[in-house]
């Protein structure tokens, strides 16, 4: 499903070229549940941004569902983000002015789904994450766990094959974190490929595959049995 070959991402800091990713190669098969671990500054977030088409690598090739991402235009990348990839952020990143329902509908707006149909499609996804009673609340009226569930619903509403979660439980208490992990794990059972960036070994313990990054390179890639 995903094929990274020798991906690098360099930043210029003054006179120095710093590589956040220095030749990362890995492949991801459909239906995997992967934890990406590593110390801060090891390039985990950069890797997620590249995988999520938010950032372009400076070198290497990235193939997603047999399509070469590096060669795509900005608009094509936007389409991939919209239809193929769901994002879950550590800080939720919901739009504060809109209700949970409107937030979940948002990706459908950009895929051109008409108004009534958007609501019809968003409601079941919100029910799936257990928020049928909170649909018309704004993010400020929701707990952290609830906000993250709204974010997951938003990531799922376009039924993307890939879900990227960047420390999804980082801002949550352990109970809410566990709930979020259950939801992600259920989704994975239903066939969604999921990659989770995490510091938390308990989170990693629930994944089938663990990738370790250090200094922009893959230093460990093992399957749990």
């Amino acid at each position: 499903m995903i094929e990274l070959r020798d991906i690098s991402k360099n930043y210029r800091m003054g006179e120095l070229d710093i590589c956040a990713l220095c030749g990362v190669s890995l492949s991801v098969k459909q239906g995997e549940l992967i934890a990406v671990m590593g110390p801060s500054g090891s390039g985990k977030s950069t890797l997620m941004n590249v995988l999520g088409c938010l950032d372009r690598p400076t070198g290497g090739t990235y193939t997603f569902e047999d399509r070469e991402i590096s060669a795509m235009s900005d608009d094509e990348l936007a389409h991939v983000r919209n239809a193929k990839i769901g994002f879950v952020f550590q800080s939720f990143n919901l739009l504060p002015r809109f209700t949970a329902l409107k937030n979940v509908e948002m990706p459908l707006v950009y895929s051109g789904v008409p108004g009534r149909l958007r609501t019809e499609r968003a409601i079941p996804v919100l029910e799936k994450v257990g928020l049928q009673d909170r649909m018309f609340h704004k993010p400020t009226e929701l707990s952290g766990g609830q906000q993250q569930r709204v974010a997951i619903a938003r990531a799922l509403v376009n039924r993307p094959p890939l879900l990227l979660a960047d420390e999804p439980t980082g801002n949550l208490d352990s109970r809410s974190g566990a709930e979020i992990l259950n939801i992600l794990s259920d989704l994975n059972h239903q066939g969604v490929t999921i990659m989770i960036v995490t510091h938390d070994h308990d989170v990693a313990a629930r994944c089938k595959r663990i990738i370790n990054l250090k200094d922009g390179q893959v230093v460990g890639d093992r399957l749990r049995t």
């Binding site: 999520g52 938010l54 900005d74 608009d75 936007a78 389409h79 983000r81 919209n82 239809a83 994002f87 990143n93 919901l94 739009l95 948002m106 990706p107 950009y110 895929s111 938003r154 376009n158």
Partner: peptide, 16 residues
Amino acid sequence: TREIGIRKAIGARNSD
């Protein structure tokens, strides 16, 4: 700015 980032992350094109 953040709203723009979020909208782009969920698939808004530059033209949107």
